[in-house]
């Protein structure tokens, strides 16, 4: 019922732009998407609770970003996950894969009931993103800091083929402590990859505390700018801002764009919000009930 994505079979640029333009500005009042976000959040806490382990905090903080992409921006075909003209979405912060599983399931890549198998033996829904077992997952991740390099390679392949598809990479702010992220950022700037958009889910918390206390990666904007990127700062829970930024990124020429999305870790569940404890802990039965009530 939520499957109202733009699944545009055409790889023609004009078509794509007009589809986006048609949506532009509509979203401030778009209650459907907000409802999708709530449903995705319910899926996330439920599947992690059923698994008994997983990472709710960083999954919940990325919901609006992932929903905006899968419901309004990406050209993709759930029935054909390897469609060659699809836009590529790369989840670099692989521990947040529940948000992606929820989006893929809601979009029809696989049945929703499969979410119950998360992290169970022989499930195709592994604890971290795995390209070989899950339809719609572009790369295996889980070792932080590797996704942007892969995205650069993907964008280079698209450019070589003169393809119109675009590359979207979702990073965490914790990942910006990894040197490889900056190796990749440097190369994307050098190669002027305007078919690449990175989104940093800047929730300010990592595994053991606040990012500013553990190893401050700020100011991210200045860093990315100095590496040759166009930078857009937004509130990552405001769907209008997320969609506008993603749209703007498509028009930037000659450099990659990074969207620094200020978010709240654990967003949507009061006792998980800004709580480092729920970086990597499943809610118990009682907590799940409370969370679902809040997300009803």
């Amino acid at each position: 019922m939520y499957n109202n994505a733009i699944v545009n079979d055409s790889n023609n640029q004009a078509n794509k732009t007009s589809a986006l333009n048609a949506n532009a500005g509509v979203f401030s009042s778009n209650e459907d998407l907000a409802a999708v976000c709530k449903k995705i959040r319910r899926d996330i806490v439920t599947m992690i609770a059923k698994a008994g382990s997983g990472h709710p905090g960083g999954s919940l903080s990325a919901v609006e970003i992932v929903v905006a992409l899968y419901w309004k921006v990406l050209r993709h075909k759930p029935a054909d996950p390897v469609w060659k003209d699809r836009d590529r979405f790369i989840l670099s912060k692989g521990h947040a894969v529940p948000v992606l599983y929820a989006a893929l399931a809601e979009q029809g890549y696989f049945p929703l009931k499969e979410l119950d198998t998360l992290r169970k033996i022989d499930s195709f829904l592994q604890g971290h993103a795995d390209h070989c077992c899950t339809p719609g997952i572009e790369m295996s991740s889980g070792s932080l800091g590797q996704g942007l390099s892969f995205s650069v390679g993907t964008a280079l392949a698209g450019r070589l083929d003169k393809a119109s598809w675009r590359v979207y990479a979702l990073l965490s702010d914790g990942e910006c402590e990894e040197g490889q992220t900056w190796e990749a950022a440097m190369s994307a700037g050098m190669f002027k990859l305007d078919n690449l958009t990175a989104i940093v889910d800047k929730n300010g918390i990592q595994l053991s505390g606040f990012t500013k206390d553990i190893m401050n990666s700020d100011p991210l904007t200045k860093k990315f700018e100095s590496f040759g990127w166009n930078v857009i700062e937004i509130d990552g829970h405001d769907l209008t801002q997320v969609l506008d930024a993603l749209k703007k990124a498509q028009t930037v020429k000659g450099q990659p764009t990074v969207i620094i999305a200020r978010t709240v870790k654990g967003k949507g569940v009061s006792f998980m919000e800004n709580n480092v404890e729920f970086h990597g802990k499943a809610p118990n039965a009682e907590q799940l009930e409370k969370a679902l009530k809040e997300l009803a």
């Binding site: 790369m139 390679g153 280079l156």
Partner: peptide
């Protein structure tokens, strides 16, 4: 450049796309 980790990731992205 002198960024072997990045090189392997970029190579992976190129390979993933044919």
């Amino acid at each position: 450049g002198i960024a072997e980790a990045n090189m392997m990731g970029i190579a992976a992205g190129l390979a993933a796309n044919g």
